[in-house]
């Protein structure tokens, strides 16, 4: 058994909110730089170069990459031998979000309720918190701020098993093509297949945390990722939807066992920044 002070969790979450919003991950940065060379559309090249320059400015001057600093999605993998002391875990995370968004000059975009008052909570809390209990005595925290230009273009579909691989491909490609310019392409596409309605969505969200250079360890799913990327990049949507070859930088697919009667599929679209930062305590 190991004791972990809730204040340490608050500190970590605050720092991760800022890091994720200021610093573009290396895998994405390299993909954008390669895109500048590979893109055939002159305007597309110019836009990709702007995104590279933007990442450099944000990094050098400690500024948010995007004005939509998102709703904070927080994943916690808590070792079952860890004992949190000095406070409530969820509260500690939300305190960290409030501090990170305030001290980091990040935009507060969260409203108290979606339908009626739509009043800003003022500190970007609450976050969307996913906690899973794992073996061991460590605590891994990942903060993935989610902007809504791309979140709004995401979709879940409960398909019949007869839809198969072709049905899934069509759903994924159509979702990205119909999103067009709205999610700020080039996008990163997270796909979740299997499980239940909510599980598919969570799988898709988690797929976005995987480095874009890493393929699914299952060879058939790895091949599916490559094929989906090729199809998406044939849509012509291109950088910012202005036409071009690079509509997506990567497609990451996660799967889970599934009921005999279903084929659940979720597509979670991320903008080019695909922000996430993690730490192990």
């Amino acid at each position: 058994m190991r004791n972990l002070d809730a204040a340490q969790i608050t500190d970590a979450v605050a720092r991760l909110c800022i890091e994720a919003n200021y610093y573009l991950a290396d895998d994405i940065f390299h993909a954008l730089k390669a895109g500048v060379v590979r893109e055939e559309s002159p305007l597309g090249k110019e836009i990709l170069q702007q995104l590279v320059d933007n990442a450099c400015i944000a990094k050098n001057e400690d500024l948010p990459l995007c004005q939509d600093t998102g709703m904070a999605v927080v994943f916690v993998e808590l070792g079952q031998d860890v004992h949190i002391t000095g406070g409530d875990l969820n509260e500690a995370i939300n305190k960290g979000i409030a501090r990170g968004y305030t001290e980091g000059y990040l935009r507060k975009s969260v409203l108290t309720d979606p339908l009626f008052s739509r009043k800003n909570t003022g500190d970007n809390t609450p976050g969307v918190i996913h906690i899973s209990i794992v073996p061991g005595e460590k605590c891994k925290i990942t903060v993935a701020p989610k902007g809504f230009g791309s979140e709004n273009m995401s979709a879940v579909k409960m398909m019949p098993p007869s839809a198969g691989v072709e049905g899934l491909k069509k759903f994924v490609v159509d979702t990205v093509a119909n999103a067009g310019s709205n999610p700020c392409p080039p996008v990163v596409v997270g796909v979740g297949v299997g499980g239940t309605f909510e599980m598919a969505a969570l799988l898709a969200k988690k797929a976005l945390l995987r480095p874009i250079t890493e393929r699914n360890p299952h060879p058939e799913y790895a091949k599916l990722e490559t094929e989906l990327l090729e199809l998406i990049n044939k849509t012509g949507v291109g950088p910012q939807g202005l036409g071009g070859r690079i509509t997506a930088l990567a497609v990451n697919v996660n799967y889970y066992p599934m009921h005999i009667a279903g084929l659940a599929c979720a597509v979670n679209i991320n903008c080019h920044a695909t922000r996430h930062a993690e730490i192990e305590l």
Partner: peptide, 20 residues
């Protein structure tokens, strides 16, 4: 169509890209 991030000290405005 923009909702910028809060300006840091010394900045005219924070990050300020377009929204949908």
């Amino acid at each position: 169509y923009v909702g910028p991030t809060p300006a840091k000290p010394g900045q005219a405005v924070g990050s300020a890209g377009p929204t949908t």
